[in-house]
């Protein structure tokens, strides 16, 4: 069984993105709203959301996500408040989609979507190596099964 978690660098990247969006919002507010009080309220709100996301939600979310992969299936556990576990047999995977963002080898922002009968499994924030490994298993699962038999 292979176990893996979302890339640590993805957490850092997301934290940076959240800070960037907050600063951008603040900059726009500062530019277009002349009333200092309103800008201050926006800054406090953005800062609160920022702190909540960067130091509470995202670390908890990343800690909760883990994947377990065997020869014939993959299970994904996730959820901060509501825990969910989703298992997919590789033999039921019809096709896969890989989304790669710029500098994803460093940011860890790689996403794999496995389309199965009646739904899909989203594997978010994987390191490039883990994403490739999942795709390899999903793509060759049946061949490997035949080989083992």
């Amino acid at each position: 069984m292979i176990k893996f978690k979302p890339a640590r660098s993805a957490l850092f990247s997301l934290q940076l993105i959240v800070i960037f969006i907050s600063l951008l919002l603040l900059g726009i507010a500062r530019m277009f709203i002349p009333v200092d009080v309103i800008v201050g309220i926006i800054a406090i709100a953005a800062g609160t959301v920022d702190i909540f996301m960067d130091f509470i939600y995202l670390p908890l979310y990343f800690a909760s996500v883990r994947c377990e992969m065997t020869n014939d299936k993959i299970t994904r556990h996730s959820g901060v408040i509501f825990k969910t576990s989703q298992t997919v047999r590789f033999s039921t995977v019809q096709y896969t989609t890989l989304v790669v963002t710029p500098f994803s080898k460093h940011t860890g922002l790689n996403f794999v979507i496995m389309f199965v009968y009646g739904g899909q499994m989203l594997l978010l924030f994987l390191s490039y190596e883990d994403a490739q490994k999942v795709l390899e298993y999903a793509g060759n699962a049946e061949d490997r099964k035949k080989g083992e038999e």
Binding site: Q94, Y95, T96, T97, L98, V99, V100, T101, P102, L135, G139
Partner: peptide, 10 residues
């Protein structure tokens, strides 16, 4: 271009 989406169908 920037976000590469790659779809594979056996």
């Amino acid at each position: 271009i920037f976000f590469k989406i790659s779809r594979t169908i056996p």
